[in-house]
Amino acid sequence: MKRIRICEEHCIGCGLCEVHCVVQHSRSRNIIRAFREERDGIVPGVKVERDGHLSFALQCRHCEDAPCIEACMTGAMHRDPETGAVLCDTERCVGCWMCIMACPAGAVQRGASGKVASKCDLCIGEDVPVCVANCPNEALVLEDDGDD
């Protein structure tokens, strides 16, 4: 499956990945409208972690043995059979936050509504996730590990 490799040494901490993630997951898909009208309703699936001059952009690792799927009591957290991505079915999520507790990367967050989990979906429908496509320093790289 396709995986995003984080090149920590090239991350410049600009936060453009977060910006484009918000746009991609907005209704309008228009950067200005997304930030004007929908910003509060979207939690970006990628987060830039910063400490001094070090930074890296972290999103769900879509683990092979995903602890969040194990921990989910409703089956909302599941693996997409086609892409292999770990996705959250918000219709089934009850907001127990066991996925957040179980995630070793801290990549699952509470959604903006505060009721369901929110996470990276590897940009459904896009060949290249927008955080990868818009990183100005190629600190996020899309790799195909060959496994389906």
């Binding site: 410049i12 901490g13 600009c14 936060g15 453009l16 977060e18 910006v19 950067i31 200005i32 930030f35 004007r36 910003r39």
Partner: peptide, 11 residues
């Protein structure tokens, strides 16, 4: 056009 994303602040 400014969306207050703070990219300029960081750069």
């Amino acid at each position: 056009r400014c969306i207050q994303c703070k990219v300029c602040v960081r750069q």
